[in-house]
C-alpha cells in the first residue's frame, strides 16, 4: 500500500495457506483480496496470485505474468517469511527445513526469478526483509536467526553481482512489528522468564515495544525510490535502536 500510495503498480504474491509447523494462522485468500482492494482503492493496478516462495517455478510464472501485464519490474520486496518460537532442542527437522526453505531459499528464489526483469528494465531495487534476528543471536528463534543472517549474505553478494546492471540490493532489519506473525511469538515471554538474563536482548533503545508495519514500509519506500539511488549492500535497521544495545 505504501508503494502504491507513491504511484507504484504491484505484483503481489502470498502462499495463502497454513504450515503444519507454524502455530499462528498464515494469510488467507481473503487477506490477499483485501490487499488487492486496498491497492485498487489507490487507483493503482495490482496483479495478485497465490504462490509458494519455496517453489521457484511457480514464483517465476507469477512474476513473468505480472510483468507481462504491468509492463516492467523496478522494485522487488523479498518479504515472505515464517517464525516459530522454541528452545534449541525443540527445533524439529521439519521446523528447521520449513523456516530455511521459506525465509532463505524463498528470498533467493524471489531474487532469481525477478533479476532478469530488473536487468531488462535497465536497473532496479531489491529489498529483502531480514530482521534484528539477522544481526543478533536472538534466543529461541534459531532457525529464524539462521535464515535471516543468510538473507544478509545473499543480499551482499547480489549487491555486488548485480551492481553493473544498476540494480541495488539492501536488507531491512525491523525489530518486533505488530502483525499476525507476532501472534506466534507468544511463547517467548515464558521462555525468557526461565532465563531472564536473555530478556534485554529483545529490548529496544527508543521507548517503544513494537512498530507498526507502516514504519518498515517507509524504509522500504526510501530504498525503492531514486532518493537512495546510490545506496546498496546496506543493512538498514528499523529497530528503535535494538541492535545498538
Amino acid at each position: 500500500m505504501r508503494l502504491a500510495e507513491e504511484g507504484a503498480d504491484i505484483i503481489a504474491v502470498d502462499i495463502c495457506r497454513d504450515y503444519g509447523t507454524v502455530s499462528y494462522s498464515l494469510a488467507t485468500e481473503a487477506d490477499l483480496d483485501d490487499t488487492v482492494k486496498a491497492v485498487e482503492a489507490l487507483d493503482r493496478r495490482i496483479v495478485a496470485a497465490t504462490a509458494d516462495v519455496r517453489d521457484a517455478a511457480a514464483l517465476k510464472s507469477v512474476v513473468d505474468d505480472g510483468v507481462a501485464e504491468l509492463g516492467r519490474l523496478d522494485i522487488v520486496c523479498a518479504n515472505a517469511g515464517i517464525c516459530t518460537v522454541q528452545t534449541w532442542d525443540e527445533v524439529t527437522p521439519a521446523i528447521w527445513q520449513d523456516t530455511l526453505d521459506t525465509n532463505l531459499t524463498g528470498v533467493w528464489n524471489t531474487m532469481v526469478v525477478s533479476a532478469p526483469h530488473l536487468i531488462a528494465a535497465g536497473g532496479g531495487s531489491i529489498i529483502c526483509t531480514s530482521s534484528t534476528a539477522g544481526i543478533k543471536g536472538l534466543p529461541y528463534l534459531a532457525p529464524y536467526v539462521a535464515a535471516k543472517h543468510g538473507v544478509v549474505g545473499i543480499a551482499r553478494t547480489m549487491a555486488n553481482e548485480l551492481a553493473s546492471h544498476n540494480i541495488r540490493v539492501n536488507t531491512v532489519h525491523p525489530t518486533g512489528v505488530s502483525t499476525p506473525m507476532a501472534d506466534g511469538l507468544g511463547g517467548l515471554e515464558a521462555l525468557i522468564g526461565r532465563d531472564p538474563n536473555l530478556g534485554p536482548i529483545y529490548m529496544n533503545t527508543l521507548p517503544i515495544e513494537s512498530l507498526d508495519a507502516r514504519e518498515i514500509s517507509n524504509a522500504v519506500l526510501f530504498l525503492a525510490s531514486d532518493e537512495s539511488r546510490y545506496v546498496t549492500g546496506l543493512e538498514f535497521t528499523v529497530d528503535a535502536g535494538n541492535t545498538i544495545r
Binding site: 551492481a163 541495488r168 533503545t205 546498496t232 549492500g233 528503535a240 535502536g241
Partner: peptide
C-alpha cells in the same frame, strides 16, 4: 522516527 543508531553509507556499494 524509529530509526536510530544506524550508519547509512551513500557509497554506490
Amino acid at each position: 522516527r524509529y530509526v536510530t543508531g544506524i550508519t547509512v553509507p551513500v557509497d554506490a556499494g
